[in-house]
Design a binder for these strands. Structure first.
Lengths: 282, 282
DNA sequence: TCGGGGTTGGAATAATTTATTCCTCTTGCC
DNA sequence: GGCAAGAGGAATAAATTATTCCAACCCCGA
């Protein structure tokens, strides 16, 4: 995961001074690369030592290491395809600008989501899902829709899946889980009480808990055995969590495709389900 | 041109000492990024000052600048097969390729979907939704999830919305529609019998029918007053309609955002709903 | 309200790194 | 041989970075 994402995720939990430094780096990564600790400190009116300490708190051995990481993150930024704009949608924007920004922010969250989950973690989640006797999906609100979408796909592969949008039913079902079962819990905030309680119960019953949450520190991911992450733009009010949902879908789609790749008879299952449904087409 | 190429090109014309430094950087660019001038000099048995002079002879203001350039060159190397790939996912594809193809095909369907609905048609749909006394959403299977997602968003704006995933309930509700109501029907194939029947009934009762279907000729769009289109990759078996769903979401997200833009108090509504939900957060 | 433990963050300073200066040595040329 | 020019290193100045120490500021619990 890129430093910039890491900084962004930790920003809220930082002390004011550190937050200021982090914000400056996020806002001006290219300038930062050319600034000494003292110069950066001067830019934001803080002490030189606080910048050094900031680097160390992020886990880098030195300020130079932090710079190296930022430089790498900058260079590895995906190049933006033509016609796509990254930026939040403003009141005055006209139709073509809105189109581009919408597609742009969706793209960004998808890219950052796939980039923030390394192959190992995805692999662990995959192995757990593959071995699972039963898979129980938890989530409320928009996350429940993603859970249901994922459940449909898993069912097409012949898996044993459970999901109900009612959180009382989720809770009741979780009480029947045990070792060998998997709970797949979705919540961007990681703080939805219902989902959290379901995860805690599942964990206590011995099931493997996979949590899909934002990058920030949150209760749900602390409960989980396997942590997966979604990246969405933070301005939720205006977008009504569009990108958070897209990020979740990107992740579940990815897991589904990898399951298909690893399951030899997957295409047959999927094909049979298509044929079955086609009876209901005009 | 990258620094490494520049160094390589000039190598022959350099003095022995400089050549040695240049060669070392070419051979060990990643190590070099973590070495000080003195450490680099020690590696090759030269003086610290010669390293500084080397940087300056290459035209960089400082050794740090040279490092920055090398870092950038390195990172760019990594992303040679960079960015987005358009193409269907094959059995032999490895993880990074799958990631890029997944994001690529999602992006493609989003771009093509926004491109294939011109502003006039979107505007008509918007006007109909805006005027509607009640909005009834129809769809089965994955389309039902999109319908529900859209219904949640419309409700946040204080609209009068109806959706149930059960097609019998949808049919029953459609029978209560009349002039001034809108039926918003989603079906990528445009051939799902249940959705089609609901649309026919709604039309007969005088409601305005908005159909969201693929670009091909299909029964549902023939019934509709207003036709909107989604573009998805056709290889549905393997992808299990991932892009069809993404296209539908892109379209409904777009309509939602445009409604927000046109409704002065929209942000207030959305904000209130966020606040209400936050009571259920840990 | 009063300590006490923990955190934040800056000043001072130590340590390290970088840049410059200055000198010697070599080489090529007349 | 004498001279100019550049290579290259030692010494040193300048800068940058890292650490230490300390004051101020919470939070808590008593």
């Amino acid at each position: 995961m890129s430093v910039l994402n890491r900084i962004n995720a930790k920003l809220d939990g930082m002390a004011p001074g550190d937050r200021q430094i982090g914000q400056y780096i996020l806002d001006n990564p290219d300038q930062m690369l050319r600034l000494s600790t003292a110069a950066l400190a001067a830019e934001i009116g803080r002490s030189q030592s606080s910048v050094v300490k900031f680097s160390q708190k992020l886990g880098y051995a030195s300020y130079q290491e932090l710079k190296l990481a930022v430089s790498e993150a900058r260079a590895k930024d995906w190049q933006v395809p033509a016609g796509v704009i990254h930026g939040s949608i403003e009141v005055g924007d006209d139709y073509p600008v809105i189109l581009r920004k919408l597609v742009g922010s969706k793209l960004l969250s998808m890219q950052q989501t796939v980039a923030s989950n390394d192959e190992q973690h995805i692999g662990k989640a995959l192995a757990a899902l593959d071995r699972a006797r039963r898979i129980h999906l938890a989530g409320v609100g928009a996350s429940s829709l993603v859970a249901r979408d994922f459940s449909y796909k898993l069912m097409k592969l012949g898996r044993n899946v459970l999901h109900d949008s009612d959180s009382h039913v989720q809770m009741a079902n979780a009480s029947a889980l045990g070792a060998g079962d998997v709970l797949f819990a979705l919540s961007y905030s990681g703080a939805s009480i219902e989902t959290l309680r379901v995860a805690e119960l599942a964990r206590a019953r011995g099931a493997t808990v996979i949590a899909v949450t934002g990058l920030h520190d949150n209760p749900l991911s602390r409960v989980a055995d396997i942590r997966l992450h979604t990246v969405a733009d933070e301005e939720k009010a205006r977008s009504s969590s569009i990108t958070a949902r897209d990020a979740q879908l990107t992740l579940t789609d990815l897991l589904f495709i990898l399951l298909v790749q690893s399951q030899p008879d997957a295409n047959e299952y999927v094909h049979n389900s298509e044929v079955a449904v086609s009876v209901l087409k005009a």
